[in-house]
Design a protein around this nucleic acid. Sequence first.
DNA 1: TTTAAATATGAATCTATGGTAATAAATTAA
DNA 2: TTAATTTATTACCATAGATTCATATTTAAA
Lengths: 191, 191
Amino acid sequence: MKELLDYFKNTVSISPEIENKISEIIEEKNLVKGEQVLTDNSAKKEHIFVVSGCLRSFFKTEDGKEHTVQFAIKNWWISDYITLYTDNKSVVSIESLTHSKVLIINNAKVEKFYQEFPQFEIIQRKNFEKRISALQKRILSLLALTAAEKYNQFIEDYTEFEKIIPNYQIASYLGITPQSLSRIRKERFKN
Amino acid sequence: MKELLDYFKNTVSISPEIENKISEIIEEKNLVKGEQVLTDNSAKKEHIFVVSGCLRSFFKTEDGKEHTVQFAIKNWWISDYITLYTDNKSVVSIESLTHSKVLIINNAKVEKFYQEFPQFEIIQRKNFEKRISALQKRILSLLALTAAEKYNQFIEDYTEFEKIIPNYQIASYLGITPQSLSRIRKERFKN
DNA sequence: TTTAAATATGAATCTATGGTAATAAATTAA
DNA sequence: TTAATTTATTACCATAGATTCATATTTAAA
């Protein structure tokens, strides 16, 4: 709870009154390793804020393959933005990779919150600006980089994640098979 | 000009006073086919709103290959979100694919505008919600779909674009070569 | 029009990555 | 600790898509 307020306070100042209001719309939840917060087809419009631990969002294709959309640690948001902001059916699930603590906020409540506390618009807009540039960066990588280059960039950008996340999930984030990643790692660390 | 105001009015009501203020920060520009609005390494923090015509954002890699990030037509925004919202150096250029009319808004002016007219935060937040879900959708496609599947989805989602955009640019949007796209089209239209 | 340039298609290799399967290493559970 | 399960690596073959190069076709320019 405090963690989210601190996060907000990086952007705007928050009155005690608002603090209370925020607390009211938030559900705090502890997750064990492997536990899912959001399941595909649930169509739950929820924002998830990571207090501690590590989560990932992913989806499965008909052939049974899993594809990782995003990882998130402390102070990151993770959600299924397609479910949140379109009427399309949800395909994304979110699961905990470690013991984690998250804050869950229903989007309907967030919508009300925008109205009551316009300052929240500012917080969210800046949050979105970061997210949009991160998503664009991801698209550039997926379009232009080879598997090895994508892995190098992942290591650079997500140093903190590297130790927590199993390689087969890193592979599914990069859009390659665990076998390919293994080959790339062998090459990379052989010197 | 009017077009942007109409676009805004879909979300919030706008007073004549605000209308004038908006006009002040906007530069209207006519583009001929092939003309660039934004060049890589220019580091210009600009939002571009398409009034008419069609534009695309793209970047080049060292090997000289072009990769298309986005296409945009009437009432779409197109920008380089990495330049806009991070300190990273810009790699993206934006060019006109047809005779086009655009509105160009400098981000510093937009920042001021947020302060003077908080309602603009709402407009922008909703704009961002759409953009984020679109970007996420693109990432899902790039991760999970084969070249042929990506092309099918492109045709479905961007019917209006299909006739305007040359195939070699569609290929660069899908992350494949024009030769591959040609093979896919042959297969697709052979019945 | 005719010519030149840009775009699209085609076919023949080549290559990075995928698929399958077997083994090894590392976690987790008993 | 040992056994069971999950994750990582390796090898070998298959394949989607890239590359290269040649040739149509379309579009723009003179």
